[in-house]
Computed example of a mutant assay.
Amino acid sequence: MQEKDIFNLLTDESFCNYCLKTNVEDVEYWENWLKENPSERENIESQKALVILLAHETATQVAQNEYRKLQQRIQLSGKNSGKLFPLIRRWGIAASLIISFSLGYYFYHKAQRNQQIASTISNKIVPGNARVMLILANGQKIELNTAASGTVARQSNTTIRKTNDGRIIYDGDSKNILYNTAITARGGKFELTLADGTKVTLDAASSIRYPVSFIGKERKVEITGQVYFEVAHNPAKPFRVLTRGQTIEVLGTHFNVNAYDDEPVIKTTLLEGSVKVNYLGENVLLKPGQQALVKNGISIIRVSAVDPELVVAWKNGLFRFNKTDLLSVMRQIARWYDMEVIYPEALKNTDLFEGSTLRSANVQSILKQLEVTGHVKFEVDGNKIIVRNK
C-alpha cells in the first residue's frame, strides 16, 4: 500500500468508523473489502491499530511530540476523494507519523477496551507491575507492591509512607545513619521520594541504596540499573550518585543514569541544571541535552548531544528507538518483560531500528513489528524469546 493510500485511509471517515466501530455499514464494507483483498490485511490492521491508538488519550502526547518535529517538513494535502474527515489536528498527526516512518516502522499498542486488535498469538506476555522490595536497615524485607497505603515502617524518627498511587515517601529527620535499599524486579518500575525531597524513579531490574535521613555535608546514594533523579536543590549539601566506579555530583537538577551491568557503557544524561561526572580521575561537566558515556576500565569520558526525551522515554511509559541495534532493543525488552533472549550462533542482523510503542503493549505485538522491519524472526517459548535469522 503506497504512502498516499495510507494517508487517505487515516483521513477517510468510512475507514475511521470501521476502526472505531461507530458505523455498522462502514464496518461491514471494510470487512467485505478485506475478504476480497486478503493481501492487504496486514496493512489495514496496522493502520486500524494506529487510528485506535490515536483515539486513546494516553497516546496523545507521543503523537504531538512527533508532529511538532515533523510539521515543518510535511505538507498535508486537504484534497482527498471519498468520504473524509476534516484534517483536524489528531488525524494530521497520524498522517505525519506514517509518512515519517515510511522507511522505518511505527509500533502500535491496543487499549484494553479495543479487544478487536488482539493478535492471533495466544498467551500474550505483558509487562510486570511495580514490583519492588524495600530492605530496611535491620534487614527486614517489605514487598511494597503488596503493602497497603499508609505507614509502611518506622525507623528512628523517620516514617515511611506509601501513597495511594503507590509511591514511597520518607518523612522525618533521623539522627542516626540508617540505610535502606529499594530493588525493582525485572518487569517492574517504582517511584520514591527521599528524605530531602529528591524524587527517584527506578526502571526494571534496578536498585538504590540511600540513607533514611541525610546527615553530614553531603547526600550520597548508590545505584544499579537505570534510575532517573529530580534532585532537591541544596547548595550546602551536594548530592552524589555512585555506580560501577563512577561518581556523579549535583546540587539540584534532573538527570538519568543507565548503568546496567549488561550494557557496554554507563550513560549519564542531563535534562536540567548541571552535573559533574567523575571516572578514574577524569571529570566532565555536562550541560542540558548532553550525555556522558563511560566504558568500563577506560578513563576516557565521551560527551555527545542527545535528545533527552528519547533517553527518559522509559520513565514516561514508552519504548523509543533511534537507530538502535537489535541487541540493545532486545536487552530492553528482556528486562521489561522478564524474559530470556536466545540468539543463533551466527546472528546476521545488522538493522538499526526507529520507532515508538507503549511499554504496556504485549511482547508479541512488538516482536511482530520487529519481524516486519528487520531480517530476523522470533519465537516465544514460555519466558524465552528465540531469535532466528530469516
Rank of each mutant, 00 (worst) to 15 (best):
F7W: 09
L10T: 10
N17Y: 04
V24W: 01
V24K: 11
V24Q: 13
E25Q: 14
N32S: 13
E36Y: 04
S39E: 15
R41P: 00
E45L: 15
S46L: 13
S46E: 06
K48Y: 04
L53S: 09
L53C: 07
L53N: 04
A63Y: 00
Q64E: 12
N65G: 04
Y67K: 01
L70P: 03
R73I: 01
Q75S: 12
G78A: 06
I88P: 00
I93L: 06
I99D: 07
S100Y: 12
F101Y: 06
S102K: 15
H109S: 14
Q116K: 04
S119N: 05
S122G: 13
N123M: 10
N123Y: 08
A130G: 14
R131A: 13
L136F: 07
N145S: 02
V152D: 08
Q155G: 13
S156N: 15
T158D: 03
I160A: 08
D165Q: 08
I168R: 01
I169K: 07
D171S: 08
D171C: 00
D173F: 05
S174M: 00
N176Q: 14
N176V: 12
I177M: 07
L178Q: 13
A182Q: 02
I183R: 09
T184C: 05
R186L: 14
G187P: 01
F190M: 03
T193G: 02
A195Y: 07
I208V: 10
I223Q: 03
Q226N: 07
Y228F: 15
E230T: 08
H233K: 13
H233Y: 10
A236F: 12
K237R: 15
K237W: 01
R240H: 12
V250K: 00
N256T: 03
V257S: 06
E263F: 11
V265Q: 11
I266F: 08
S274Q: 08
L285V: 15
P288R: 05
P288I: 06
G289I: 05
G289F: 06
Q290G: 10
L293E: 14
K295S: 14
N296Y: 10
G297C: 05
V312G: 02
N316T: 04
F319K: 03
L326D: 00
S328G: 09
V329C: 08
D338H: 08
D338E: 04
M339W: 01
P344E: 02
E345R: 14
F353R: 00
E354K: 01
E354Q: 10
E354C: 09
L358C: 02
S360K: 11
N362C: 12
I366S: 04
K368R: 11
Q369T: 11
V372F: 01
V376M: 06
E379S: 09
D381Y: 06
G382T: 02
